[in-house]
Amino acid sequence: MLYIFCPHCGLRSQNEFAYGGDATVKRPELNKEISDQEWNNFVYLRKSPRGKHLELWHHISGCRQWIKVERDTSTHEIFKTYKADELTE
């Protein structure tokens, strides 16, 4: 079971969190003209890298904050965690 550092609460076990997928996806701006292809990429396509990956976790049984976790998907090593408003670019 992973041990995840919540930037708001500290080290907590994985069972307090829900996984939220790729954190690098950026939602297209509202009211913007956008091609089918671009929209498809946003809704359906996700990278599933082996190695370092920035992903979202939701501390649902804790502070209810969404956080970003930089994790190695093959070794589970967690390098760093960030608050939702960090790493926005």
């Binding site: 829900a18 939220g20 939602r27 979202l56 939701h58 649902i60 904050q65 969404w66 939702a84 408003d85």
Partner: peptide, 13 residues
């Protein structure tokens, strides 16, 4: 609730 929190915290902070 998780859905709303997602948009408020990550998409439209």
């Amino acid at each position: 609730l998780s859905h709303l929190e997602y948009y408020l915290q990550l998409v439209w902070p």
